[in-house]
Amino acid sequence: MRILVTGTAGFVGAALTERLLARSDEVYGIDNHNDYYDPSLKEARLARFNQHPAYTHLRADLADAVAVNQAFETFKPQRVVNLAAQAGVRYSLKNPQAYVQSNLVGFTNILEACRHHQAEHLVYASSSSVYGANRKLPFAVDDPVDHPVSIYAASKKANELMAHTYSHLFGLPTTGLRFFTVYGPWGRPDMSPMLFADRISKGEPIDVFNFGNHSRDFTYIDDIVEGVIRTLDHPAQPDPAYDAERPNPGSSNAPYRVYNIGNDQPVQLLRFIELMEQNLDRTVEKRLLPMQPGDVPDTWADVSALRRDVGYAPSTSIEEGVKRFVSWYREYHGLS
């Protein structure tokens, strides 16, 4: 298939692109290479497949509607995966405009391009952050998500609402995937796994928020990519069981779906740090601090809907995943 992927220099986007190329799809990638974190890591990810004969790369911002439309006009994608976004919960408190431009304006441009160029299916990244102040665990897609606690989360919930509107008005099949704490080789340096690895390897103390009482549904990158591909290959359909008098937030009488994509195995943050220490052969001082604004205490994905509909089955244990991540980290940074 011809698949347009946004965010191909990003963590999930690069890993997904490699898998799509390996199965002989043709991929058109868009990324703006912004400096939210070290662009050299983005360039290194991209270098793994940038010369592949079935890959085309465009350096552009999704907020540039002309560039987005020209990409669709040139490539004529059958399916689209939108992973480009301004990420980060804490940064959204400092620079909300970046989230408006990327996650709202940029996503609208993707929806419009999919509509006018008759895309067969749009899969897009949402986030576990949409569950916000919810405390019922595990988080399920039929739970209400009306109380976001960060601007980032609000922008991702807005994406789901916008996607539903396009599915309803124009029959565009859309599927939103709520990612739960993705980690693994080539991961983002602003996320806790890379931050912890940096500090542990340097013997520097680490900040542990919520006094170490956080738990997270850490999900290994290979499991995430497998779930994205399975979803991409199953375009959303109207839910025949949808009841407008008792609406299910995860489906619709339009071709619209939202799924959790996680490991369904929450891990205490202190246990994750312990595994990092074991694999790096070092211990670290832990500075226990209060919970930060915008954070949530726990995440846990109910992935039963994704299991049912596409056969999603995460298989990487936290022990194996941390081992693989640290092995890559040592190699990438030239550590013995």
Rank of each mutant, 00 (worst) to 15 (best):
L93R: 06
Y131Q: 12
A87Y: 00
Y99F: 09
V5W: 09
E26P: 07
D38M: 06
Y37W: 01
N50C: 11
A71R: 04
S24I: 00
V130L: 09
R19Y: 01
H121N: 06
P96Q: 15
L62P: 15
D38C: 03
N103E: 00
V100F: 08
A84K: 14
L4K: 05
E43F: 10
Y124I: 07
Q86A: 06
D25P: 01
R79K: 06
G10H: 06
A44L: 07
R19P: 04
L41M: 01
G29A: 03
Y28T: 13
Y99Q: 03
R19L: 02
V12D: 00
L41K: 06
L122P: 10
N34T: 04
S24Q: 05
R90F: 11
L21V: 01
L111A: 05
E73H: 05
A63Y: 11
L16K: 06
H116P: 10
A44I: 03
G7H: 09
S102P: 13
D61Q: 12
Q51V: 06
H121G: 11
Q97I: 13
L122G: 11
E112G: 14
Q97A: 13
I110S: 14
T6N: 10
Q78D: 00
Q86L: 02
D35S: 10
Y37M: 07
Y124M: 02
A119V: 14
A54K: 13
V105C: 00
H117G: 12
